[in-house]
């Protein structure tokens, strides 16, 4: 564990907490894409299939449980909690899951490190995570008005990806045989998807203005 990996995990954790805070205390999920949240449930469920079979550390197992539990509870809140569900932008959040999942399934079957069930599922989760934010970015683009918590949520998620890239660079130079092209390329694609959002986030921060995306 290096400082970049820890910073990445902590920003990831913070992003989830910010979203839960918004949903749990303000009872609002306005501007939050249920499609993206459901894709994250699938990402974590397929990636952490090994939670009972491979043990790395208490830290890892605990974080896996937190990410699984929080993503499930966010989707539960948005679907079944009456007050929260009322605030959901259903008409705007129209992205189709299969449009993203199908190419990821095919790609995972074609390109993987090992052709085993767990490994293909793990690889699928990497590909899907790379594009899971797209419905959220489309929703932002459509609603344009972004409240502070939603903006911070996406900013922290993007930060998590950025720190993971630094972690890979660090591990590549400090650990022998640490080469994982699939993880790196899908991670890089994922981070690049945030670039546009980051640009406008920093612009609004610099000018001390409310974040607003161009039409």
């Amino acid at each position: 564990m290096n400082i970049f990996r820890l910073a990445g995990d902590m920003t990831h954790l913070a992003s989830v907490l910010v979203l839960l805070l918004k949903i749990h205390t303000i009872k609002s999920c306005a501007g939050v894409s249920l499609k993206t949240q459901e894709l994250y449930v699938i990402v974590f469920a397929t990636r952490y299939l090994d939670i009972f079979t491979s043990f790395v550390s208490i830290y890892n197992s605990l974080m896996k449980l937190i990410f699984l539990g929080s993503s499930f509870s966010i989707v539960w809140y948005m679907r079944y909690h009456k007050a929260v569900h009322r605030t959901y932008d259903r008409e705007q959040d129209t992205f189709r899951h299969w449009f993203l999942m199908l190419p990821c399934i095919l790609l995972a079957l074609l390109i993987h490190e090992k052709f085993t069930f767990f490994e293909v599922m793990w690889t699928f989760s990497l590909y899907l995570e790379a594009v899971a934010i797209l419905p959220q970015l489309v929703l932002l683009q459509r609603t344009r008005n972004i409240d502070n918590l939603t903006g911070q949520y996406i900013f922290l998620l993007g930060g998590y990806r950025g720190f993971y890239i630094l972690n890979w660079i660090y591990r590549y130079f400090t650990e022998p045989h640490y080469v994982h092209w699939i993880t790196w390329i899908s991670g890089l694609v994922q981070t690049l998807l945030y670039a546009d959002f980051f640009y406008y986030y920093f612009l609004s921060w610099k000018n001390n203005k409310k974040l607003q995306l161009p039409a």
Partner: peptide, 10 residues
């Protein structure tokens, strides 16, 4: 899985 370093990440 020590043979696959990416699996110790989240």
């Amino acid at each position: 899985d020590s043979a696959n370093g990416s699996h110790d990440e989240l």
